[in-house]
Write a protein that binds this DNA or RNA. Structure first.
Length: 574
DNA sequence: GCCGTTTTCGGCCCGACTGTTTTCAGTCG
């Protein structure tokens, strides 16, 4: 049973407890534990075997015992009893936005509604407004929300949402009276997927700014609107929120809407223990009752004696603790990146010429780029035979002679075969600068098999980078069962880099895995895996993953200047 | 249910909007 599956069950338990009307603190404990196990890189079974389940913050004696029962028996009596005692219909009804446990319970008990379809029928028939406490407006909203639920798609990829956000912000910038309009929430944290778009802004007249927002041409429907905030659905189906405060509280507002829920709770608890209360309007001194707004976000943290920290790590893990010790490292930035070690040209399945890719990379300020087209057996991607690779190497050599100010490295994305050998034309080995080795088939193999394959590849002396190590595709393919703990230890020993692949639906390794690799002593490589010139910008996403994994420039191979990189490649081959 | 250089018991973040209410509960982020 995977950590994700355990997390799912803990969340279900939280839902059921909510319906039961249990203490909200107990509910929150289950939600927190669900989040903790989901973002824990080490397999729960391993933790259990080592007796370390309770070491995970948010997991105590009781939940650790439940996880153990799940792992050992595949069942959890506590969960099954909860389910048996409550109609499953309630959980279904709560999927409709605006319907919480109380409303769902009443609809079930008083009208016998057991599904979303029955809910819709009841609303249409006017049966809901017949209940005390509900009016026609409630019915109208239920019909609207059921409709939106059907349209509602899964969380969107960050790479899909960022361009939309850029357009909205550009439009709002031109509205008189709106200042400091920026994205917050999961977008500012650069999460791999985004549930809704959060925007924050300041204005002398917040209500007018909110009004301008809901009148944007991108807006299909207004779900809610007050003097300082609004929620809308965009024409593309994405939900967007805006929150507006006066200028002097911009820092407080930004702080409030950037961290995830866990981060904010931990921060506010920390503040409270020191006699302060934090909100989007400022920090209140609980002794005097006076509130001080902050225009600068960093000052919110500094005023509490905390080191300010980048948005990407405000996740409620241990960042507050580290900030209190002034132990937040300087995370890698895009400006630290000196080159891209995984790029495809039109020689295989890319669409750009090597020249254009090099020009694009040079324009980004890079010193080098490695052309890593697919190896021969990946025929579907027009993989390179030894003969074509030889030609490509000659081409690269000529281009390098023509422009000594930039270096095109020869490379290949070599397929890792079923037996763990790596597909590289041996006669050309001495001429290939960068070998990225990746698995493209057999991703659903057993943990032992796939771990053995990758371990063998890591030990090949000419393999510099392991490409997209888990093979996952967000929304389409689960990561392989590879034992990353074992892999990272091998990679550290062999000095083989682990890739953070920047394709928006790969992001492989992901944040917690990258952090685990770094802590194991492995070096990482942030790569765009671009198949066009535009896609070189996917480096942004790879760097974001690295930042979310607390990586510094020194942990990343391609922050090395060209000379150092060449020396690193040479040294590890002998 | 979790957690602790103030605590092993008694706490556990903060505020906005909605609909239907005469003062607030429910829901959400």
């Amino acid at each position: 049973m995977s950590n994700a599956e355990i997390s799912e069950i803990l969340n279900r338990i939280a839902e059921l407890l909510e319906i039961k009307g249990e203490s909200r603190y107990r509910i929150y404990a289950y939600q927190r534990a669900a989040e903790a196990i989901a973002s824990e890189p080490v397999d729960a079974r391993t933790l259990m075997e080592q007796g370390r389940l309770e070491n995970v913050p948010g997991i105590g004696k009781s939940i650790a015992a439940k996880i153990t029962e799940l792992l050992k028996t595949g069942h959890l009596k506590y969960y099954e009893d909860l389910q048996a005692g409550l109609p499953s219909a309630i959980v279904h009804l709560m999927e409709v936005p605006g319907i919480g446990p109380k409303t769902a319970m009443r609809l079930y008990n008083e009208l016998g509604i057991t599904s979303v379809a029955e809910l819709e029928a009841a609303a249409r028939a006017g049966r809901i407004s017949g209940l005390p406490g509900y009016g026609p407006k409630t019915e109208e909203n239920i019909l609207r929300d059921v409709h939106n639920l059907r349209l509602h798609e899964e969380r969107r990829l960050l790479g899909e949402v960022l361009p939309v956000v850029a357009d909205m912000i550009a439009a709002l910038r031109s509205v008189p009276g709106i200042r400091n309009i920026v994205p917050a929430g999961s977008i500012r944290r650069m999460e791999e997927t985004v549930g809704d778009i959060d925007l924050v802004a300041t204005a002398g007249d917040p209500a007018k700014a909110v009004q301008a927002f809901v009148k944007l041409p991108q807006v299909r429907e207004v779900l809610g609107q007050g003097p300082t905030k609004a929620t809308v659905v965009l024409r593309n189906g994405i939900q967007a929120d805006i929150r507006v405060v006066p200028d002097e509280a911009f820092g407080s507002l930004l702080q409030h809407f950037t961290g995830n829920k866990a981060h904010n709770i931990i921060l506010r608890e920390y503040a409270k223990s020191k006699g302060y209360s934090i909100s989007e309007y400022g920090i209140t001194d609980l002794r005097t009752g006076t509130i001080k707004p902050y225009a600068d976000e960093n000052e919110v943290y500094e005023s509490l004696g905390l080191q300010p920290m980048p948005p990407e790590i405000r996740l409620g893990t241990n960042e507050i603790e580290r900030a209190a010790r002034h132990d937040i490292p300087r995370l890698v930035t895009l400006a630290d990146i000196k080159g891209d070690l995984h790029v495809h040209s039109d020689w295989s399945d890319g669409v750009a010429s090597i020249e254009d890719l090099a020009r694009g990379a040079k324009a980004m300020g890079y010193e080098y780029i490695a052309i890593c087209d697919h190896s021969a057996s990946l025929a579907i991607a027009n993989g390179l035979s030894a003969e074509r690779l030889r030609k490509q190497i000659d081409t690269v050599r000529r281009l390098n002679e023509a422009d000594p100010s930039f270096r095109i490295l020869t490379g290949i994305e070599a397929n890792i075969r079923g037996d763990g050998t790596v597909e590289v034309p041996e006669e050309l080995l001495g001429e290939i600068d960068v070998v990225v080795a990746s698995i493209h088939s057999g991703l659903s193999q057993s943990s032992e098999k796939i771990t053995t394959r990758l371990t063998k590849a890591i030990h090949q002396p000419f393999v510099a980078v392991i490409g997209h190590p888990t093979g996952r595709i967000l929304g389409h393919r689960e990561p392989s069962m590879v034992d990353l703990g074992a892999i990272f230890a091998q990679a550290a020993g062999q000095r083989t880099a682990m890739e953070i692949n920047g394709i928006p639906d790969r992001l492989d390794l992901r944040d917690v895995q990258a952090r685990q690799a770094m802590e194991a002593g492995a070096i990482l490589s942030t790569n765009s895996d671009a198949h066009s010139v535009d896609q070189l910008s996917q480096m942004l996403y790879a760097v974001a993953v690295a930042r979310r994994g607390w990586l510094e420039a020194r942990h990343i191979l391609n922050t090395k200047p060209l000379g150092e990189l060449l020396e690193w490649l040479r040294a590890r081959r002998k």
